[in-house]
Design a protein around this nucleic acid. Structure first.
Length: 580
DNA sequence: GCCGTTTTCGGCCCGACTGTTTTCAGTCG
């Protein structure tokens, strides 16, 4: 019986919540499953370990009942209630709810009346004309679901942050150019810098909403207007993603930005706290609630600072608003000062044209200079990755001589001699200690093993970390977002070994990797493991992806003190294992 | 199903837009 990790447990609870919702269960009952799943996904320890000590109920949202279900899951791989729920509602119906325009009620109706139990089955019904005959469904509703189904097929799976950010920036720029617009800011998952984005939310401050709504409908990137009311317009853009633009009065801007930045879980928790203090928070401001429960005096909401201040809190950075501890920290005025782009002094993972990059070491160095860096590391592929021209010792000698000349020439950023080693089947690396000792630093990465069991991959990684010349582990889980699952690894064991050996863990900033991810980073931080961001640039421009690495670190609560990139060169050297 | 400095019972966040409803339900965020 393979051990269920936290994500697997969270998924089962989410499925249970979805099935309960479709079945028409009490709202707060199914919400409690989702709430528990949310905190489990972010929990730094494995629940299997907590269960052994009888500490499951320490996780917020897990009570006696869910603790028992989780114990059962850990033993049997599933739990009785879920099996029962699956008999009542086919799990395929859950996916039908992913179609815009179909929620739990309609999904249930389609199943009960037409036997729809999957997206495919719904597609057939769309063509049959039977949907129109159902109660409460008119021609327009069916047409909306038809469009939703098309959008689901075309755009199922979310877009990468790097694809969404430039589109949002362009739209914001156009809107801010309007005379009637005071401010326009992207909110939602984009502002929280999530790895992937579903749709784009933009909040606009203006006293002339109708002018803004008309302007949004006329934006050149708009392919279709889905809905357009007095204060909200939803459009499909030519590149695919849906964009929702909301207009608020300038004195409501902070409240609206806070509200639409989310996350949903963060906001729910915030409003609970407000309510306990006889306050109400909505997208228009913070209000005192009257004795009779009526909405009383408006206390503020022009800025986000004001909203949180009225609740007695510091402002949590958008990246950490997941309701995974940031609200407690904000109330206690104990939020960490997170790493910022301005803290970054260099890049620890950059390839050159000596192997498979399009850019030379000089071009990388020029980019480092443009970015204001003090140093940049060349980490070309090592010998064993022959496929991309991994370097022989002779080629390395040439590169080192070249780097020495560059560093002697002028006063640009210092180029460090690095390498991206391959972790072999036995945990060994490409070169012997005599060669490894000559690098300034070594990154070591797994480039194989996607079909190996967790124990094997974990052992390879642990072995590599016992090599005193391995300074940094590159893209530790090997995932490629939307294309390749992470390696199955015992991350607790890996990070414990990193703490023990002083090995630094990489945050690979390449936008479809972002590896380590936020949850692993929070665990690393707890264990005292240090972090290095590398862009894995394969052309000099890729070094600009550093912003995605910084965002990932921020989502993992990493501060400048914990990040190698924020240190001056002499401190960098002192953190490396080889210098101890 | 969870949770408690108002509570171990009775709460649990809030509003906009759409369509088909003749007064509101469903969906979405």
């Amino acid at each position: 019986m393979p051990e269920l990790d936290n994500v697997a447990i969270a998924r089962q609870l989410e499925l249970m919540g979805d099935l309960l919702e479709i079945a028409g269960a009490d709202k707060f009952r199914f919400l409690s499953y989702r709430k528990a799943a949310n905190s489990i996904r972010a929990w730094p320890e494995q629940l299997s370990a907590l269960a052994d000590d009888g500490r499951l109920t320490e996780v917020p949202g897990i009570g006696k009942k869910l603790a028992a279900s989780i114990e059962e899951m850990l033993h049997r791989g599933t739990f009785a209630e879920l099996e029962e729920a699956k008999k009542a509602i086919p799990p395929g119906l859950v996916e039908v709810m992913d179609i815009p325009g179909v929620g739990p009620k309609r999904a249930k109706q389609f199943y009960d009346k037409l036997g729809v139990d999957s997206v495919g089955a719904l597609n057939k019904m769309l063509d049959s004309g039977k949907l129109e005959k159902l109660g409460g469904m008119g021609a327009k509703s069916v047409e909306n679901i038809r469009k939703g189904h098309a959008a689901y097929l075309a755009h199922h799976g979310r877009m990468l942050l790097m694809d969404a950010l430039p589109l949002a920036d362009r739209m914001v720029e156009k809107l801010e150019a309007l005379p009637s617009v005071v401010r326009a800011v992207p909110a939602g998952s984009l502002r929280r810098m999530q790895e992937t984005i579903g749709d784009i939310d933009i909040i606009v401050a203006s006293d002339e909403p109708e002018v803004v709504m008309a302007a949004v409908r006329d934006l050149p990137v708009v392919a279709e207007v889905i809905a357009s009311g007095a204060t909200k317009t939803s459009v499909l853009t030519t590149s695919g993603p849906q964009v929702d633009v909301r207009v608020v009065r300038p004195d409501e801007f902070g409240a609206a930005l806070q509200y639409f930045t989310g996350s949903k879980e963060h906001n729910v928790h915030l409003r609970e706290i407000a309510k306990k203090r006889a306050l109400k928070v909505n997208e228009y401001g913070v209000f005192r609630v009257g004795e009779d429960g009526s909405e009383g005096q408006r206390l503020g909401g022009a800025s986000e600072d004001e909203v949180y201040r009225l609740l007695g809190m510091e402002v949590p950075p958008p990246e950490i608003r997941h309701d995974t501890g940031e609200i407690d920290a904000a109330e206690a005025h104990e939020l960490p000062r997170l790493l910022e782009s301005g803290d970054i002094r260099g890049d620890f993972h950059v390839h050159s044209s000596s192997t498979d990059s399009h850019s030379t070491i000089e071009e990388n160095r020029a980019m480092a200079s443009e970015l204001g860096y003090e140093y940049v590391v060349v980490t070309d592929h090592a010998y064993d990755l022959r496929m991309v021209g991994g370097l022989s010792v002779e080629q390395l000698e040439e590169q080192w001589a070249h780097v020495d000349r560059l560093n002697a020439e002028d006063s640009g950023p210092v180029v460090l001699k690095g390498i991206e080693l391959n972790i072999g089947a036995d945990g060994g690396v490409d070169y012997g200690p005599d060669v490894l000792a000559r690098f300034d630093l070594c990154v070591a990465s797994l480039h194989s093993g996607w079909n190996e069991p967790a124990e094997v991959v974990t052992q390879r990684l642990l072995r590599a970390m016992e090599n005193p010349f391995v300074d940094i582990i590159g893209h530790p889980t090997g995932r490629v977002i939307g294309r390749r699952d992470p390696l199955s690894l015992d991350m607790d064991a890996v990070l414990a070994k990193a703490a023990e050996t002083g090995t630094i863990m990489e945050v690979n900033a390449y936008p479809d990797r972002l590896d380590l991810c936020d949850t692993h980073l929070r665990l690393a931080r707890r264990l005292g493991v240090r972090i290095a961001i590398g862009t894995d640039a394969h052309r000099a421009e890729h070094m600009r992806y550093m912003r995605y690495g910084v965002a990932t670190c921020r989502r993992g609560w990493i501060s400048a003190e914990e990040c190698l990139n924020a240190q001056p060169l002499d401190v960098v050297r002192s953190w490396l294992r080889r210098s101890r």
